[in-house]
Design a protein around this nucleic acid. Structure first.
Lengths: 205, 205
DNA sequence: CATGGTTGGTACAGTGAGTGCAGTATTTAC
DNA sequence: GTAAATACTGCACTCACTGTACCAACCATG
């Protein structure tokens, strides 16, 4: 259901090699960031560890920091797909909560561990904040599909989007650090905030 | 009341000159960013327009982008002062809303115009997001003064802090763009979200 | 008012991220 | 089988930012 917008191509040996190079670069980048720190790692180190040239690194990632979140692009696409999958027939706030809950459920422990680690490195926090903005604008766009694009609706959509991502970020960083139930914590917070005026309670969950 | 923590020193000619240089750098930086764009402006341009060396620029600002928000530091300090001014005798969510409301009220039109302009430039959006994080952690710290530092409290404090700043950001960017009532919009959103479970309604406002 | 430490600014050399461009080799398409 | 597309390379370049040594004006103390 989520892949509806994307046809899976045959994937020849060229594309496979390209993805392998990219995966390799990200893997060595994250390993080196963890081992010796972000600032102490040069792009040249990463590239030569992955067996490619420095120039090639920038064919795969726009910045050094982007290599720490190699699957961000596809994750956003997946998120948007899931969001749009329910439009425009359901209560948007309800659907948003369902999709967010599903996303937080599929956040596996290794990803969560990497998240809490990376959120301590200032440069990577910046990169992470940048990725969050992609989610925010996706959510705002989705809500405006239902609410329209009048200034008041746009403001409300953006405020809700920022709120949802803000709560998710808090749940991931604090909850992940202390081993709390990330999904439950985020959902509980959102239910308190949006429970009455924005949608009906989530009895089905 | 807000200056309680900071003694105003005599301010000799040396300090005055230093502030003048800093003000001058920021002024030319913002002017050049507006006129020709952020990426198209080099630090050397800014420095020589202000009549100082490139190295001096970095004695006043840590990055090129920071020159676009020259008073961020003192504004955060002022915000924290006002927050702590009410601790720990009042309902923290109530006090937070009062302080935030006061801050949004003192956001004059020229600042608002600059904000909406700068939020369109990706590099400056990043810098702005970085400054927002200072507010977020200030708010979270304040709330934890009242709620304690247990993981659940920490999570809730961070979630609320991210939410408050997220709503303020939406109100400033969308509201500022369309000439809406920024303060009223933000306050209305926050009242909807935090009205019942977090504090009592703000009858006094 | 002398003098010595402090400090705002400068000059210079260097590191490293990121880009443009020209070229090579392999792969894919017709 | 040939030609266009493309993953990658090498090189030269710009520019943000830093470390260091230095100068000159200030300020505090006697």
């Amino acid at each position: 259901m989520a892949q509806s917008l994307h046809t899976d191509r045959p994937l020849g040996p060229r594309e496979r090699q390209r993805r392998e190079t990219r995966r390799n670069l990200a893997e060595h980048a994250i390993r080196l960031f963890k081992a010796q720190g972000f600032d102490e790692t040069t792009v040249e180190e990463i590239a030569s560890a992955a067996g490619v040239s420095t120039r090639t690194f920038f064919l795969h990632f726009p910045t050094k920091a982007a290599a720490a979140f190699p699957d961000h692009g596809e994750r956003v696409i997946d998120f948007v797909d899931r969001l749009m999958d329910g439009a425009p027939h359901v209560n948007p706030m309800f659907h948003l909560r369902v999709v967010l809950r599903a996303r937080l459920e599929t956040t596996d422990p290794s990803r969560l561990a990497r998240y809490t680690l990376l959120s301590r490195v200032p440069e990577l926090r910046d990169e992470d904040a940048r990725t969050d903005r992609d989610y925010e604008s996706a959510i705002a766009d989705y809500l405006m599909l239902h609410w329209g694009r009048a200034p008041e609706a746009e403001l409300r959509a953006n405020a809700v989007a920022n709120t949802v991502i803000g709560v998710a970020r808090a749940a991931l960083s604090v909850g992940g650090e202390h081993g709390l139930d990330v999904r439950g914590a985020a959902d509980d917070m959102l239910q308190r905030m949006f429970g009455s005026p924005f949608d009906e309670p989530l009895h089905s969950l």
